[in-house]
Design a protein around this nucleic acid. Structure first.
Lengths: 290, 290
DNA sequence: ACGTCGTATAGGTATAGCCTATATCTTAAA
DNA sequence: TTTAAGATATAGGCTATACCTATACGACGT
């Protein structure tokens, strides 16, 4: 009951002529004869009456015809579905991003994609790197926007979108603010306020300090940048803020300073699973962002 | 979009496990992996998300699932139909017979078949030999009951059912009725009344006369045996009647005489087309009557 | 570190679908 | 009657593919 035989059967039924049907089916007449024969063997009865003046459906063939048509219709319908989802995006594009990136980068990103695919719908997830990696693996999201280092599987693709500088963040009245250049070591003894450890920004900040020879004393951890800035304003410590977030926090009573002599840049990458084939959404976006 | 791949897809979707699905599908796990891969290539997207803890449908796979199920259902339905028609007769058994046989033989024949296949329905056609042969060829009937000689195609099968004697039929008061044995030649000069030429009984009767050295003078042709007997009763000529018809005409004022020294027997055969495969009806009947 | 479970890959085989060439019939034309 | 044309079926060969076994690979649990 293979599908191509059903197709051939319908062609012969339609044209009433093996040779003509073979042309429509894009195979040779003998091949078509063969396949009809096999279908007849399979169903156990003749489907056609071969007469000198063309081929007609046998009684059994007539009864079988609606079944064949029904199969054909369902296959057509499935094929249509496949075609449609190949051309236009079907289903939402599901994007995850870490919280320290999402609010600042995703709006632009989505705008860019929407400009190219007006019909695109989106579903956004803001979670920590590990959670996003898991969602990628289970297929719950199509993309994740995260910052290396990441413990992703080998079959994960990644595309660097941009670099973002981490800016030293001090209370506005901090004595170091007057200096042209600040060396991290000058902050020795100062307290550091950071995000929860699950956030990569906090790990990156700590790593940065350590690399600069500063043994920072993390006294407070919070889960939002906004909260951290409040702490800094009150002089409870210093922190690091992604540069892309600065515009959203201009009114705060803190200053953001680049460490010119040794700026700390973190990479922001787009991740997706390298599956057998990309989803249509994935192809579209990767294309769009490259 | 071949059917077996749809089947495999559904098995994997159901079990969420390639190895398990392969068992259900009665193929090896690598073969199944391969076929799923090919289906994925065909539709252009991954159908499953392969994770450590089993296989889940991808978003696209979820959307594709109902289509696959629909195809499967139609195929099942078609298969059911084929199976049903293999077991029990579907559609009527279409039997044709020549008019000089039909009323006398078909009732018995049908009764015999019906005894074995109580659900059988019948469609009967009474026509001349040539018309029946044509209907056989076009598949309009499954069987024809006729009397040789017949100009059938090479691919026509035939099974002798019985022999029927043609009885000389004379008016009750005919002088020859007193004789123990009648020789056809004694009818020299008598008129012969026969069916229309299209009826094989008439051709056979004429042939019989000729073979016996009697040049018969056919003055009247009619299309029914009943009418012929009326003619004979009125002394308008003699004729020949199939023995199997005699019981239905006992009350007529004619006598039926066997030509003992040289009885004329005509063969009554069942004909059907030897197609690639017999219809279920045909198989049933041939089996039943052999 | 090692075996287990699950999927993918590699390599080989047999079959099935396709092709061309040709046979077989039938009908129409010469 | 022969010939040509138009149809389907058969024969033989090629290729693609669906299948197999063996094995690799990766993740997990012991």
């Amino acid at each position: 009951m293979e599908f191509h035989r059903i197709r051939y059967f319908l062609e012969v039924a339609r044209t009433g002529n093996f040779s003509r049907a073979a042309e429509w089916a894009n195979i040779s007449q003998p091949s078509l004869s063969q396949q009809i024969s096999k279908l007849e063997d399979e169903v156990g009865e003749s489907l056609f009456v071969r007469a000198r003046d063309g081929v007609t459906l046998s009684e059994f063939g007539k009864s079988f015809l609606p079944h064949a048509k029904a199969i054909m219709e369902e296959v057509e319908s499935a094929r249509d579905f496949v075609d449609r989802s190949g051309r236009q995006l079907v289903g939402p594009i599901r994007i995850g991003a870490i919280p320290t990136i999402a609010p600042y980068l995703l709006p632009d990103l989505l705008k860019k994609i929407a400009a190219r695919y007006p019909s695109a719908r989106f579903e956004l997830f803001e979670e920590t790197t590990d959670a996003l990696i898991d969602r990628l693996r289970t297929g719950a999201i199509d993309f994740a926007v995260m910052s290396p280092p990441t413990k992703v599987d080998r079959d994960t693709e990644q595309l660097s979108l941009q670099h973002d500088e981490l800016l030293l963040t001090l209370p506005k009245d901090h004595p170091l603010c007057n200096l042209k250049q600040i060396d991290l070591k000058q902050l020795k003894g100062e307290r550091l306020v950071l995000l929860q450890e699950a956030h990569c920004l906090s790990r990156q900040s700590e790593g940065f300090c350590k690399a600069s020879g500063l043994k920072a004393d993390v006294t407070i951890r919070s889960s939002q940048i906004d909260t951290l800035l409040g702490m800094v304003e009150l002089g409870l410590g210093f922190t690091f803020t992604p540069k892309m977030a600065v515009n959203y926090h201009k009114h705060r009573k803190v200053i953001f300073r680049s460490l010119k002599q040794k700026p700390y840049l973190r990479d922001i990458c787009l991740y997706w699973m390298r599956r057998r084939t990309l989803t249509a959404s994935q192809q579209a976006i990767v294309e769009c962002l490259k």
